[in-house]
Nucleic acid binder design. Structure first.
Lengths: 187, 187
DNA sequence: TTGAACTTTCAGAATCTTTTGAAAGTTGAG
DNA sequence: CTCAACTTTCAAAAGATTCTGAAAGTTCAA
């Protein structure tokens, strides 16, 4: 069935983006809500969003809170209005870098520490060639994690990359390269 | 509580990688299983994996099937042995590119088509400045999707990038840039 | 301070995902 | 062919996650 009204078209787009967002590990509702706000261009209230997207007030509330935590939607003050209004962040780069940054923090923090702990134990308790090889493979895994972190870091550091301007990609390429080579020299 | 035995250390590492993998939208079991195989270095049978990871035979079977679908683990034939053995793919680049590729296919296929359909409807049914602005925002969203696809494609095209050799990152940077600029000229 | 308008919270319902355990299926040696 | 060894499949259980609807909380105008 083809969408025929303006609202159905909006939902079609919202659901498409919702699926992308879900594919990357978030709730579909986040993508749907952001899309409606983005396409509208202006600021909308929670009730109106809930009606357009067929979501309950409760779901709307948690969704909007989470979107704000990701700095992907912000609350705007409309003078004379009692209720809260929300509008979409339109800077794609800001949104992506926020998400990538969050995931990198996770990698950097907990994971490397745990791998390191595992390696330390293996080093102590193990004897023989097989055990040594195991320690060394774990080391390679950690080296890869470090490498990935470096790539992500430089990606984030190139904060001025604007996906709308192709020219700047050049800068990204250079920065990633420079950072990675620099780090390699140190170790 | 600190791990003290070799096996506890193995589980510590496996759980860490399991969490990373879960963070990127897969089942934890996939990451845990791959890690045990990777650290072991050799080929292991399903029963042994299940025992080390405390997983049932059924879970082991589906997990190994899925890991093979992602080409991240492969079955190996051991002459004289009745049961199947499995070993880990150790090429990180192969694994990552496979996953990125899969996600790109999703973006390229369904999503752009749906956004386009929504835009077509909006174009027809809408009149007035606000409606025109909405169509144009949807256009910007689609342009971004195309851009993202291009970046991912060039990333994938630079198949020789080896995360273990920093030097090759230079090639990645160049290729991404070249591909993006080329595509921009065409449109 | 009160009441209306709105938002947040949260227990329970609904839904989706993953695991288990056992039955059914497959394979190869003898 | 038959049995034993192994693997896959699948229904039901367990476990997570997300949503609803209503109660509680907040805020502001009067």
């Amino acid at each position: 069935m083809e969408p025929t009204t303006e609202n159905e078209a909006e939902l079609l787009a919202a659901d498409a983006i919702g699926d992308v967002i879900e594919h990357w590990g978030f709730r579909k509702a986040l993508g749907r809500t952001w899309t409606v706000l983005y396409l509208d261009g202006g600021a909308l209230g929670a009730a109106e969003l809930g009606e357009r997207l067929q979501m309950s007030a409760g779901a709307m509330s948690t969704t909007l809170t989470e979107l704000q935590r990701w700095a992907v939607v912000r609350k705007v003050w409309i003078p004379g209005e009692r209720r809260d209004f929300f509008e979409a962040e339109t800077d794609f780069w800001k949104m992506i870098s926020r998400v990538v940054h969050e995931r990198e923090r996770f990698l950097a923090g907990s994971v490397r520490e745990r791998l390191g702990r595992a390696q330390a134990v293996l080093r102590k308790t193990s004897t023989g060639a097989a055990a040594r090889a195991r320690v060394e493979r774990l080391g390679r895994l950690m080296a890869f994690a470090t490498m990935a972190e470096t790539v992500i870091e430089s990606f984030l550091a190139s904060r001025r990359v604007d996906f709308g301007e192709f020219g700047n990609l050049l800068a990204l390429g250079r920065q990633v390269t420079a950072a990675a080579v620099g780090k390699a020299r140190k170790s």
